[in-house]
């Protein structure tokens, strides 16, 4: 059994860096970030947030291979800020939005708390439906059984 542990797909190894930045040598103000142990959840969200920044000219991400748990995020800016700053700004803006959203959710949930039980899943209180077909209620025959010697 030499299969790697499943959790290696989402937990950083000892000393492994969550992020590696490589500056692009041919394009000005461009960098590629290798973000390790993350997937489309983060990649797509960051890319979209980066694109909304007016100083970002290009942002794209790819998962080079589905078996390798990392994605690459390419960012090019117009030069007013370095790509890493753009990425950091995108992250902080998203965190702020999620924070607001968290507050909204908290408030909404507190309003709804009262009728949580009432609106629960409807339970059929009539004939108990048996998802397993009969519930083992039928006897094999009370008198004889092959185990009765």
């Amino acid at each position: 059994m030499n299969a790697p542990n499943r959790y290696e797909l989402f937990v950083l190894d000892d000393g492994e860096k969550a992020l590696e930045a490589t500056e692009d040598t041919k394009i000005p103000n461009a960098a590629t970030f290798k973000i390790v142990k993350q997937d489309h959840t983060l990649g797509n969200m960051l890319r979209a947030q980066l694109l909304s920044d007016p100083s970002v000219l290009f942002a794209g991400y790819k998962v080079p291979h589905p078996l390798n748990p990392h994605f690459l995020l390419k960012v090019q800016t117009d030069g007013s800020i370095p790509p890493a700053t753009a990425l950091e700004n995108a992250c902080t803006r998203l965190i702020t939005t999620i924070n607001t959203l968290e507050g909204r959710f908290k408030r909404e949930f507190s309003f709804k708390d009262v009728d949580a039980g009432a609106a629960g899943p409807t339970v059929n209180l009539g004939v108990p439906d048996d998802p397993y077909g009969g519930g083992g209620a039928t006897a094999w025959g009370a008198q004889r059984d092959y185990l009765d010697f």
Binding site: K17, Q38, A84, L87, E88
Partner: peptide, 27 residues
């Protein structure tokens, strides 16, 4: 829902932290 939002935040926070750690000149 609440933990989902918190988890998203922690994912983003890890990126911010890693950015600060690795490339002080770029950031």
């Amino acid at each position: 829902v609440m933990q989902g939002l918190a988890e998203l935040q922690s994912k983003l926070a890890k990126i911010v932290l890693a950015l600060k750690k690795t490339e002080p000149d770029m950031v």
